[in-house]
Amino acid sequence: MKEPALALTDLRKDFGKTSIIRGVSLSVVAGERHAIIGPNGAGKSTLFHLISGRFPPSGGTVALHGHDITGLKPSAINRRGLSRSFQVSNLFPRLSVSENIRCALLWSTGYRYCFWRWADRLSDVSAKVEDVLTRTGLSGRRDVLAGVLSYADQRALEIGIAIAGGADVVLLDEPTAGMSHSETRRTIDLIREVTIGKTLVMVEHDMGVVFDLADRISVLVYGEIIATGTASEIRASKAVQDAYLGTAGTAH
């Protein structure tokens, strides 16, 4: 059997006495597009923070390609090939769009803490910057400071930074949040295109996006995964209908 790209085993997170993540086990195979859905406050973003190293888990393990990464720093996890985007845009606001992407490429291209080369004359990095600019549709705004971009462009840059470094496991936290219908369509196409050959785990509220994009879906409710399966399996699941889709369906 193939090693899963990302495997969570009984992952837990407590904040004080409150348990936010209460024993999540999940296995994502390489090349899969996996969506995590769930009502507000279910712990979806917290789960991402545990996987990407922003918070240390209170218990359980995270394995990336079979290697234990539990409790590692975000930088160490990123260097092992996992990158992520944020629900609230988390850019370098006083750097230009192309500099944002360039920075996201420097470590993975091998320049690390180099101070004897010109950052903007590294032909290998520059070629990749161009590629990411084209794929995210930001070529025309390359010299604009990230902090003054429009919301949709900031979201595109957010994804661009996440995929630039060539990580093979990508976590996207609500990539289409707050977007108009046409922007959402464009973003879905972008995600589909940039994650070819990669493993994608995404948190998403928009059911249209989820059913359109994901190979498999996990439903997170109160810090526990109550169901995992294909779109049709999830639609058919009684537990999901009770816990989530039924209520969410009327709420949305």
Binding site: S52, R54, K73, P74, S75, N78, R79, S83, R84, F86, N90, L91, F92, P93, R94, L95, E99, R102, C103, A104, L106, W107, S108, Y111, R112, Y113, C114, F115, W116, R117, W118, A119, D120, L122, I161, A164, G165
Partner: peptide, 26 residues
């Protein structure tokens, strides 16, 4: 120095140390 990879990352860390961690830098 401001134009080297390290110099650029210094500016990136100034802007957003958290994100710098998620692109591989300490």
């Amino acid at each position: 120095f401001t134009r080297t990879p390290l110099g650029r990352m210094a500016t990136a860390v100034r802007d957003n140390p958290e994100r710098a961690e998620f692109i591989g830098y300490s």
